[in-house]
Design a protein around this nucleic acid. Structure first.
Length: 413
DNA sequence: CTTCCACAGGAAAAGCCGGGGT
DNA sequence: ACCCCGGCTTTTCCTGTGGAAG
């Protein structure tokens, strides 16, 4: 076996494509300006409003929040309050990841510890207290914080299962009719809720919703032009000079924008393409590398999707595969359904109705596993779809391989 | 221009869990 | 142990659709 060496003609620092760049956020100036403006009360030493931030992963919600908080602190530092009619606020910010905190209780306990860590006072155990006691300690701590303002960002709040207690109590603790009242004269509290689950807001308890979602900021996916700037920026660090062909970055950005609009998608794609180029000992990364990488990523997605399919979905996929082998595609749904039904009976599964299979086929079309074409033969045939395999049969086979559910199937109509 | 094919896909009802509460 | 509720899937029902045939 050949020895590995650290020499690399392509990458200067591939980590630039894999890690976050915490210090840099591009193409979000307008969004961040809008975001920051929601906190203008803070620099005026007034009560902050609560903000609800939503948008898919990897579009800058988390670093954007950190940047906004940081800039608020700087804004306060830079402003000459002595010469103004405003009192100078002081700001404490906490960014809490709720990813592994599954209950309101856990969130409250971790929040309490984060607040205490600055003053190095005793941390509390994150288990064992009565729930009410944890809240009592938390709000007591908030009252005693030595800054005029506390801004709390709860990241990935959709992970807080169970009850919405903390999401109800915390955002309204400055309201004097709140059970857990924190006098704004002592501490003004603002809560930022961050989530990538678009439906989360609707699932909130209406009381929590109205206070937490007082102000909303939506982070949309990046478009191709924005992605190009981001990829360009990272590529300058990640690669040696002149390694990327002219159109590699624009193509990467365009494909990623089409697929998801996430920065992560674009960077992964470029990494994959460049890694392939390196493995093939090519001196430069070309558009072809990008295209090949995109294709293999999409095929991987199809294989993954098929592996994750329900029993019925698997049987439909299998039916499509067999129809394709028999050169019977494209086929109408009736035919696919007939095959599906036969296989289902063979493996002793109750077949679902054709309406459901109709939906299943639509699901398979999202990833391009199958495609369809509208056919209209008027009075002699009507209007319907003809379904065709959207990927090579081997890919389907790959996804179905080893699936015990279709092991015993051996049908032919 | 009207009719009519044959299915697409929306809407609502029905069925089916899983998790709490009692 | 039992039941009830909410959320999700499946079934049932039915209207809408575009172009060829008449």
């Amino acid at each position: 076996m050949e020895r590995l060496t650290p020499d690399d003609g392509i990458f200067r620092d591939e980590d630039a494509l894999r890690d976050h760049f915490p210090d840099r956020i591009l193409e979000r100036d307008d969004k961040l300006a809008e975001y920051q403006s929601r906190f203008k009360e803070v620099v005026r030493n007034k009560r902050p409003r609560n903000v609800f931030v939503y948008g898919p992963t990897g579009v800058g919600k988390t670093i954007g929040t950190k940047a906004v908080f940081q800039n608020l602190e700087r804004s306060i530092e830079a402003f000459d309050y002595e010469a103004s009619r405003f009192d100078e606020p002081s700001l404490r910010t906490v960014h809490l990841e709720c990813k592994d905190l599954n209950t309101s209780y856990q969130v409250a306990a971790h929040l309490l510890n984060r607040l205490r860590s600055a003053t190095n006072r005793d941390r509390v155990s994150t288990t064992g207290y009565p729930e009410g006691e944890i809240y009592r300690m938390l709000f007591e701590e908030l009252r005693q914080v030595d800054t005029s303002h506390v801004l709390i960002a709860l990241d990935e709040i959709d992970n807080i299962g169970g009850d919405d207690n903390i999401l109800y109590k915390l955002p309204r603790c400055n309201n004097d009719n709140s059970a857990a009242y924190v006098d704004p004269a002592a501490t003004k509290v603002g809560v930022v809720g961050i989530t990538n689950d678009g439906t989360f807001r609707e699932s909130l308890d209406p009381r929590a919703k109205s206070t937490l979602c007082d102000q909303e900021i939506h982070f949309p996916p990046y478009d191709a032009v924005e992605l190009e700037t981001i990829v360009e920026d990272r590529a300058a660090v990640a690669f040696h000079d002149d390694v990327l062909s002219q159109d590699v970055v624009p193509l990467t950005a365009a494909l990623a924008a089409q697929r998801s609009g996430y920065a992560r998608t674009a960077l992964d794609l470029l990494y994959e393409a460049a890694d392939n180029a390196r493995s093939a000992d090519d001196a430069r990364v070309t558009e072809n590398h990008v295209k090949t990488a995109e294709e293999s990523i999409q095929q991987g997605a199809i294989v993954e999707e098929i592996r994750g399919l329900s029993t019925h979905g698997t049987l439909v996929a299998y039916a499509m595969l067999r129809l394709s082998e028999g050169e019977e595609l494209p086929a109408k749904i009736d035919k696919i359904y007939a095959w599906y039904k036969q296989f289902a009976e063979q493996v002793d599964v109750d077949p679902v109705t054709s309406r459901t299979i109709h939906n299943t086929l639509n699901d398979l079309m999202v990833n391009g596993t199958v495609t369809s074409e509208e056919v209209n033969k008027g009075r002699s045939g009507g209007r319907h779809y003809e379904y065709e395999l959207g990927c090579r049969a081997e890919i389907l086979l790959d996804g179905l391989e080893g699936d015990s559910r279709i092991g015993p199937v051996d049908g032919r109509l």
